[in-house]
Amino acid sequence: MGLTLQDLAWHRAVGHLIERLDQPDFWLALSRLLHDYVPADSWVALLFGNGRPRVFAESPFEGGGSDPLHHDYLRGLYLLDPFYIASREHQGSGLVRLADVAPECFEQTDYYRLYFTHNVVADEVQFNVQLDAESTLCLSLGSERRFTPEQITLLELIRPWVTALMRKRMSFEPEPDEQTSTGSPPEDGGVDRVMQRLGTALTLREVDVVRLMLAGCSNKEVARKLDISAETVKVHRRHLYGKLNIKSQSELFALFMKAQSTP
């Protein structure tokens, strides 16, 4: 079977991208190429590591200027991002779907309601490239509609080209201290460091429960991840609610937002 016109167009476009590997608009050109085959409503190229994510490029904000929700993400909401969590727990390269990494109660979380549905809207897929033991390069595509099985299959088919280009691009990205587009530089942190800013002493296990609860894990999922019983999870939850003087997960999320925005 010979090459189709669509095959020829793809290989020609990839050739043009290779020529643009060292150009400032590489990520935009790559996102536009992908959009020709699988339409997406938003995209972002970023690096997950031990500190805050490094953003290399992203789709423009509709209102112009910078997206305030994106600033919230970089200040601390990324800690609740199922893609970020998955990249830290199960490192590796490949195409990752939201359905692969979202916890059981993800759509019931305040993170989903107040951030995800506004910034990503309905569905998300991510090309991941594991660079080393600590760093994962990601190209995330967000959509106002669920990606269809056919679209996922197509993205998986072209994944080797996309991830190879992403890996090659890294040699042309600036060092962290040269990058100014994301404001404050990446720093070490986590839910435990964020919650410590509240001035309330939580045990390490309680912090683990907070992190998993806010991410959307059910009591059973928390129990499985921490290798404890569901009843013990409920006890930890009751204790930390008492320490923080709150009565709901929404109040816990509000405290998290307050803490992560505190210098």
Results as ranks from 00 to 15, higher is better:
E175Y: 11
L69T: 01
E89W: 05
D227H: 15
E221L: 09
T163P: 00
Y84L: 01
T148W: 05
L95G: 04
D100W: 09
S248A: 12
L131P: 06
Q151D: 09
K247A: 08
D81W: 11
K168W: 06
E150W: 09
A29W: 04
F127M: 06
V194A: 04
E104H: 13
P60N: 03
F147Q: 01
D123L: 11
L204N: 12
S171D: 08
E221P: 10
G189W: 02
H16C: 05
R75C: 08
A259E: 04
Q108G: 02
R205K: 15
F48K: 00
E175L: 13
A133R: 14
F172W: 13
Q130A: 14
H16E: 14
D41T: 13
V129W: 03
S218C: 08
S31C: 10
I228W: 10
D192Q: 12
D81T: 11
P103K: 09
G92P: 05
G76D: 02
A259F: 06
D123Y: 10
P103C: 08
S171C: 07
L154M: 14
Q249I: 14
L34K: 04
E62P: 01
P24K: 08
R113M: 04
F56N: 00
L77E: 02
T203P: 04
N119S: 14
D81M: 12
R145L: 08
Q249G: 03
Y78I: 04
E231T: 14
I152L: 14
R12S: 12
T200C: 04
R237K: 15
Y84K: 00
T153Q: 11
L255I: 07
S250T: 14
C105H: 12
S229Q: 06
E144R: 15
K234Y: 03
A29N: 08
L198V: 06
E89F: 08
K234W: 02
D36R: 15
R146Y: 07
I158N: 01
